[in-house]
Amino acid sequence: MVNPKEIRDYAAGLLEQGRVKSVIGYRRGTAGCFAEPCTLTEPGEAGSLVWDPTCLNNLALYLVKDRKQQAASRTPDRRPIGIVAKGCDSRAVAVLLQENYFKREEVVVIGVSCEGTGVVDPRKLKNSLKGRSALKVEFGGGESIRITTRAGESELPAREVLADRCLECREATPKLHDVLFGESLAERGYDAPFRAVKAAEATSGEARWATWQHHFDRCLRCFACRSVCPLCYCPECVVDSTSFVITPQTSAEEKANRIRWCERSANTAESALYHLTRAIHLAGRCVDCGECERVCPVNIPLRLLNTKLEMEAFEQFDYQAGRDYDRPALISSFRDEDPNSFIR
């Protein structure tokens, strides 16, 4: 089992030695039992780092945020950043490296293996506690999660409360890392990859359309799924007509003639356009960290859209986003053996 103290000591060491300007990790939050992201800049702060099944966030997002800030800054600070990364998070870092978002030496990946478990799904947890709130959620060792409520402590099989993405995870140990905490387990007895999307695909086209109409109709267009995604880093977004980059040099014509691909109205058609565009833009890039689905306040199963495309990438091209950061990305590479029947 991973000892959080080792992570703290390592983070403190990085900061002490001046190897990084900051370490992005998890700390106890104030809003319930879940951990929240934190950015440490002093070795003395490392004591606040935690590691448990409530470390839900994909922190690679904050590497992107920092890069955007430095790009806008008059005095950019490009010293490396340390980041605590689970398997999925490190895959996101790998895709960002593949896409030259930053350089390998600009990030120190503090890899943490999820070992036999992963992170919990807050909704599953709530359901299993019949609406009550957990006070503490810890690894129970092996494939179990230990939960403390006002009523006391109990141990649950991890399968019951783990996030779906963890159940389908192919690589719970970060392959890309500078240091690794925890054991690397080859076999985890959960679901086969793409189980959920395969199950969804088994239904009829009409049923799928009805399901997605229902979900798109519920979308609030709060854009949390896009905002939380470390790979949705475009400075301007095709679905968001008003947030394109404007500089003093942008001409009136450019602003006036910008096509509004997507209206702000949160209706079925516009929201479908938003989600499908986003899914396509993540094809061959989505690392299945499941953040989009986790943050959705109305619980739209967004993972299905992305994993569908990742399944295509895997089955057609034997490609897994984030597996090899030093190989070319799917979209920007061609091999003779790639299926090309669509050309004929």
Binding site: A252, E253, K255, A256, N257, R258
Partner: peptide, 11 residues
Amino acid sequence: MRMGRVTTAFH
């Protein structure tokens, strides 16, 4: 002043 979508339409 011609600046954006609406003002360009006015121009």
